[in-house]
Computed example of a mutant assay.
Amino acid sequence: MTESVFFNPGDAIASSHDYKAARRSAQIFKANKPTAGQIIIAKNAKNGEYAIYLADRIAPSNQGVRHDIKDRL
C-alpha cells in the first residue's frame, strides 16, 4: 500500500523524472546537511515526477499536491 501525502511543489529541494537521480540528490543533500531532518522522496501523482522534500513540509490536503512516498532518508 502506498502512503500519500500533500506537498507544495515550491517546497521541493530537487526534482527529477528519474528515481535514481532523485535518490542520489537526496543522499547528497543529506550528506551536506546532516541536521536537516528526515528527507522524503515522493512521486507527484499528477505528472509522475519524483521530488525531494523535508518531512516537516507536509501540507494540508487543501493546500498541496498529492504525492506518493517512495522512500525516506
Rank of each mutant, 00 (worst) to 15 (best):
residue 55 A to S: 15
residue 22 A to C: 10
residue 8 N to G: 04
residue 62 N to I: 04
residue 58 I to E: 14
residue 53 Y to P: 13
residue 72 R to T: 14
residue 36 A to P: 11
residue 2 T to F: 03
residue 13 I to T: 04
residue 33 K to R: 08
residue 1 M to R: 12
residue 3 E to A: 05
residue 58 I to T: 13
residue 62 N to K: 12
residue 66 R to V: 05
residue 69 I to H: 06
residue 35 T to D: 15
residue 43 K to I: 07
residue 32 N to T: 14
residue 12 A to W: 01
residue 7 F to P: 11
residue 54 L to I: 07
residue 58 I to A: 07
residue 30 K to C: 01
residue 62 N to E: 11
residue 43 K to T: 08
residue 17 H to W: 02
residue 15 S to G: 06
residue 48 G to F: 03
residue 71 D to S: 12
residue 66 R to Q: 13
residue 38 Q to M: 11
residue 26 A to Y: 00
residue 65 V to F: 02
residue 6 F to I: 04
residue 21 A to T: 13
residue 3 E to K: 12
residue 61 S to V: 05
residue 29 F to A: 03
residue 22 A to V: 00
residue 47 N to S: 02
residue 1 M to D: 15
residue 28 I to A: 10
residue 24 R to W: 01
residue 7 F to E: 04
residue 49 E to K: 08
residue 15 S to L: 00
residue 15 S to M: 02
residue 66 R to Y: 03
residue 49 E to R: 09
residue 12 A to I: 00
residue 41 I to L: 14
residue 53 Y to W: 11
residue 53 Y to V: 03
residue 26 A to D: 00
residue 4 S to F: 07
residue 61 S to F: 06
residue 61 S to Y: 11
residue 33 K to C: 08
residue 41 I to R: 01
residue 43 K to Q: 15
residue 66 R to F: 01
residue 57 R to I: 00
residue 62 N to S: 13
residue 36 A to F: 06
residue 58 I to W: 05
residue 56 D to V: 08
residue 54 L to P: 15
residue 63 Q to P: 07
residue 56 D to Y: 10
residue 46 K to S: 10
residue 72 R to I: 12
residue 43 K to S: 07
residue 12 A to G: 04
residue 53 Y to N: 06
residue 26 A to M: 08
residue 9 P to W: 03
residue 54 L to V: 01
residue 12 A to E: 05
residue 6 F to A: 06
residue 36 A to C: 15
residue 7 F to M: 02
residue 15 S to H: 06
residue 64 G to H: 05
residue 44 N to V: 00
residue 25 S to Q: 11
residue 6 F to S: 10
